[in-house]
Computed example of a mutant assay.
Amino acid sequence: MAKLTANTFFTEEERKRIEEAVKAVEKSTSGEIVPMVVDASYEYPRAEILGAGFFSLASAVFLTWLFGGESIWVFLPLFFLFYFPFKLMIRQFPALRRRLIHPAEIDVEVEEKALVSFLERGLHRTRDETGILILISLFEHRVFVLADRGINAIVPADTWDEIVHTVTEGIRSGRTCEALCAAIGRCGELLEQHFPVRTGDTDELPNLILD
Rank of each mutant, 00 (worst) to 15 (best):
R91V: 04
V145M: 02
P45Q: 04
I209F: 09
M1R: 11
I106H: 04
L119F: 10
G131D: 00
E189V: 10
R97C: 05
F9Y: 15
M1C: 12
W160S: 05
C181P: 03
L81G: 10
D128R: 06
V155Y: 04
D161T: 12
D211G: 15
D128K: 11
F67L: 14
F55M: 07
A52L: 02
I184Y: 02
C177V: 15
T29I: 03
R198C: 08
N207G: 06
T202N: 07
L180F: 08
I134E: 00
R172D: 09
S137A: 14
A95V: 12
F67R: 08
A52T: 04
I106Q: 05
Y42F: 10
G51W: 00
R99N: 08
E105T: 11
D128L: 12
L119C: 08
G200I: 10
G185L: 05
N152F: 00
R46T: 13
F62C: 11
L205W: 05
V167H: 01
V110G: 05
I106V: 13
R125F: 07
V38D: 00
T29F: 04
T64C: 10
P206D: 03
I18L: 12
A6Y: 07
E178G: 13
P94M: 04
G188A: 06
G150T: 01
A40R: 08
G188R: 01
F118D: 00
E14D: 11
D161K: 13
F84N: 08
F84A: 14
V34F: 03
D39M: 10
P103F: 07
V61G: 07
F86V: 03
T199H: 12
Q92D: 09
L81I: 12
K113A: 07
F139R: 03
F118T: 00
P85Q: 04
I106T: 12
P35V: 08
V145Q: 01
L119V: 14
H141E: 09
D39I: 15
L96F: 13
F139S: 01
V110P: 03
P196D: 02
L180D: 00
L146Q: 02
I132Y: 01
V25L: 06
I163T: 08
L66W: 15
R15E: 13
G69I: 06
